[in-house]
Simulated assay, not measured.
Amino acid sequence: MASDTLKGMNVAILVTDGFEEVEMTEPRKALDEAGAQTSLISPKPNKVLAWDFTDWSRSYPVDVPLASANPQDYDALLLPGGVINPDALREDVKAVAFAKSFFDAKKPVASICHGPWTIIETGAAHGRRMTSWPSLKTDLKNAGANWVDEEVVVDQGLVTSRSADDMPAFNRETIKLFADARGHVAPAA
């Protein structure tokens, strides 16, 4: 169902090869349907290759190469998971700086599954209540986060979820957080 809840909001989706496909496509669809303008941003200049749970999937066009992306052009950030994607992003200085700029500017961020690996590198996990794929529990605790095993957690402008199984709750809370950040009221679910 289309909505104007996020009309006028520009959302950056930061990924590289190996992002979990459904963790990008489903939130992107929900954001687009809520009226947001989403942009796939990547260190890869032309296209990125998705992962579909156990194997490579299709490629997606990059809307804005990371090298030319300006965080000031975006109101919010989405960090999909997958194991390969956030592991590569957290080693990319420009990707970490791009993500960190959203936390520094107190713009809302949504991250699912292994996506918090990138957040750990920004230093923004410290002092936040978060969830993630269970194998990140120790990493997040070591980064100063209060890790909990819940389908979705919202804390200090950040929404996190464990996995694609939590997608309905993740999408609902992401849209609510992003709408609240813009002073809009999200519709009741």
Rank of each mutant, 00 (worst) to 15 (best):
P108G: 09
E121M: 10
L177S: 04
A30G: 10
T174F: 00
A36M: 10
Y60E: 01
I41A: 10
A69L: 12
R162I: 12
L158S: 01
D104Y: 03
G81D: 05
Q72M: 04
D32Y: 05
L6G: 08
L158Y: 07
P65V: 07
L136M: 14
S59K: 04
A188K: 15
Y60I: 03
P61C: 08
P45V: 09
R162E: 15
F53T: 15
N46C: 03
Q72Y: 05
L6M: 07
P45H: 06
H126E: 14
V62A: 08
G35E: 01
F170A: 11
V48G: 07
S163W: 12
A145M: 01
N10C: 04
I175S: 09
K137F: 13
I41Y: 14
L31Y: 06
D92Q: 08
P27V: 10
L177V: 04
D165W: 10
D139W: 00
S59Q: 10
R172M: 14
F178T: 06
G123Y: 15
W133P: 01
T25K: 06
S39T: 13
T5V: 14
V83L: 14
E21W: 08
T160H: 05
V48Q: 02
D155F: 06
E150A: 13
G82V: 01
N146G: 04
W56A: 07
L31S: 05
G8M: 04
C113G: 07
Q72S: 10
N46T: 13
P168C: 03
N146L: 15
L177H: 03
A164W: 00
S3W: 00
V159P: 05
S135F: 09
I41K: 13
V96G: 07
W147Q: 12
W51Y: 11
D87A: 12
P80D: 12
T5P: 14
N171W: 02
D139R: 01
A36V: 01
P116A: 09
E150C: 09
R28G: 10
A169L: 15
N142V: 05
A99I: 00
A88G: 06
L40Q: 02
A124C: 08
D104W: 08
S57I: 08
S163T: 10
L158H: 01
L140F: 03
D155M: 05
